[in-house]
Simulated scan of single mutants.
Amino acid sequence: MKMTSIKMKKKLEERMNNPEWNTSFNRDKDTFRIEWKHSHQGITVTIPNIIAKYERRGEAALDELEDHIEEALRIMDQTNELSGKEKNIFPVIRATSFPKKSKSGKQMVVTEHTAETRIYYALDLGKSYQLIDQSMLEEEEWTQERLEEVAAFNVRSLPTDMNHDQVAGNDFYFMASQDGYDASRILNESLLEEMKANSKGELAVAVPHQDVLIFADIQNKMGYDILAQMTMKFFAEGRVPITSLPFMYEDKHLEPVFILAKNKPETQQNSGEDE
């Protein structure tokens, strides 16, 4: 029997039965909302999308949805403090198109990085994280410099295990630990310097999405083409895409580059430098 929106609504109501929450069904938009009674903060899910997952995976899809909703509501309802949680603060790399303000209008703490990327800061909450905004700094009397120092120290403490692959005489190294901070490791200056010191040719770095960091030891012209194709593929598949442009690493600077087929890349005009 085909699952209808009304039947799915009833299933969700049964699962989201919490005395501290309100649930509501919008028949026109075919959405279901769960929110805290006291603050009206909540999350809205699209019923047809849930039905599609349910028809593929059954109750397991609803188990997963329930976990995500509970976690999202828990984070919304807690006041997070930075003091005492210094070890849980990390930088995150985002595209320059990523909003500088939260949905609630709060100004995020950001640091300029390159022409393609910007640094935000996250308080790790275990299963998820919260991006740090200016009001959090002000409430705890933190300076942005202190936040940047703490985050930089923590990213240097992350493991740097990589997989190695050799293609057409070029060496490629992939980091994909799935801890949410793979791309952030591009900010580990000692790692970049170590990779540069060990490279046979020119060193390129790519952060196509949040969950991967690629180093390329380019030793011939074909290496540029391979890197360009690889970066575009990862960028298209990423859950949190960042940039399809790789960077050349030289003299402690990251320069975004356009790679033209079978040619050495030309540095992007007006590109920024990493801080």
Score class of each variant (00 low, 15 high):
residue 242 I to L: 00
residue 135 S to R: 14
residue 59 E to K: 12
residue 216 A to L: 09
residue 156 R to L: 07
residue 174 F to R: 06
residue 133 D to L: 02
residue 224 Y to D: 02
residue 32 F to N: 02
residue 155 V to D: 01
residue 56 R to N: 13
residue 73 L to R: 01
residue 135 S to K: 15
residue 122 A to P: 03
residue 237 E to T: 03
residue 122 A to W: 04
residue 140 E to S: 14
residue 10 K to R: 09
residue 129 Y to G: 14
residue 11 K to Q: 12
residue 165 D to K: 11
residue 39 S to M: 06
residue 37 K to H: 04
residue 116 E to K: 13
residue 253 H to I: 10
residue 96 T to K: 13
residue 31 T to H: 08
residue 183 A to H: 06
residue 26 N to A: 12
residue 42 G to K: 06
residue 115 A to F: 06
residue 37 K to E: 09
residue 141 E to P: 01
residue 35 E to A: 08
residue 162 M to S: 15
residue 141 E to H: 15
residue 99 P to S: 04
residue 51 I to T: 06
residue 5 S to R: 13
residue 198 N to P: 03
residue 235 F to K: 08
residue 114 T to Q: 04
residue 187 L to K: 04
residue 55 E to C: 05
residue 23 T to H: 02
residue 89 I to L: 08
residue 236 A to K: 10
residue 6 I to L: 12
residue 76 M to Q: 15
residue 58 G to E: 00
residue 243 T to L: 02
residue 133 D to K: 08
residue 169 G to A: 00
residue 116 E to H: 02
residue 99 P to W: 09
residue 143 T to H: 08
residue 218 I to R: 01
residue 234 F to M: 07
residue 194 E to G: 11
residue 184 S to K: 00
residue 213 L to R: 07
residue 244 S to T: 08
residue 50 I to S: 01
residue 86 E to T: 11
residue 18 N to A: 06
residue 184 S to C: 01
residue 205 V to M: 09
residue 88 N to K: 12
residue 175 M to D: 03
residue 192 L to V: 04
residue 145 E to L: 09
residue 153 F to D: 12
residue 205 V to C: 08
residue 59 E to S: 07
residue 34 I to K: 06
residue 222 M to Y: 09
residue 88 N to M: 06
residue 17 N to S: 12
residue 82 L to P: 00
residue 161 D to N: 13
residue 137 L to E: 08
residue 250 E to A: 07
residue 239 R to E: 14
residue 186 I to K: 01
residue 3 M to E: 09
residue 43 I to Q: 09
residue 203 L to P: 10
residue 197 A to N: 15
residue 200 K to R: 15
residue 163 N to P: 05
residue 262 K to Y: 13
residue 184 S to W: 00
residue 36 W to R: 13
residue 269 Q to G: 08
residue 108 M to G: 02
residue 84 G to L: 07
residue 27 R to M: 12
residue 136 M to A: 03
residue 22 N to H: 14
residue 4 T to I: 01
residue 186 I to E: 03
residue 272 G to H: 10
residue 102 S to M: 01
residue 114 T to M: 02
residue 182 D to L: 05
residue 147 L to N: 08
residue 67 D to H: 14
residue 135 S to I: 10
residue 167 V to Y: 05
residue 237 E to V: 00
